[in-house]
Design a protein around this nucleic acid. Structure first.
Lengths: 110, 110
DNA sequence: TGGCTATATAGCCTAATGGTTATATTGTGA
DNA sequence: TCACAATATAACCATTAGGCTATATAGCCA
């Protein structure tokens, strides 16, 4: 688990990779499409994609001639959960919020 | 802002540094106390602390002969906010939750 | 099948990271 | 003030990361 957190946080520590994730939040995209906004070489982008994929933040698809990437939200949830343990330090209303969530699960989520 | 995110995510990508934060979640601690659980040299810990401090995740105090560290939650909130933009991808009840938060701000937070 | 398109891999370079030991700095208290 | 305790800094080393160019691979289509 420590290793997963290492990989995910490390992957997110690069602005190019975060920008790639932001792009993928709008839907799947090919490597060429993902590379387009940057002044980096294609291999550099492929490397970034490999880092993201190994961290579990994205997945590769298969479509005709291309290998489109899609977002893999579970990895982001992993670190969101990690951060949640610290939430009480900055969010005073967190306890009430947590109560609400429990109720929501019990009453509406069926 | 990109630079801040870089620094914070990068600081969090190391398990030693995350363990240090976890320790500081229980309250302030001296460098010696923070170093104790690890088999690392004292300078190695000081380096980690410097990384955490430069990322804004901790602060140094001054107390007699020692320089105790304390948690600085704002930096964690910074990345929590970043992740929040992706929350919809894994949390279906997020929209309702968001509504609730707005109401909470308006009615109870005074 | 041959060539084009899309992407991946290899090999190289430089800079940054994380560790070490040795040493400097700073404050406390006898 | 002197010595010790707590911490920081310096100098060094090995590994990793992120970039590049050149080249390999894989699938589609004429």
């Amino acid at each position: 688990m420590d290793d997963r957190l290492d990989a995910i946080f490390s992957a997110l520590s690069d602005p190019t990779r975060r920008a790639i994730l932001a792009r993928l939040a709008n839907g799947k995209a090919t490597v060429a499409e993902l590379a387009d906004p940057f002044e980096l070489s294609q291999p550099a982008i492929s490397k970034h994609l490999k880092v993201l994929e190994q961290a579990g933040l994205i997945r590769s698809g298969r479509e005709a001639n291309s290998r489109p990437r899609i977002l893999e939200p579970a990895a982001l949830k992993t670190i969101a959960d990690w951060i949640a343990d610290y939430r009480r330090f900055w969010d005073q209303s967190f306890d009430r919020l947590d109560d609400y969530l429990s109720k929501l699960q019990g009453t509406e989520n069926d």
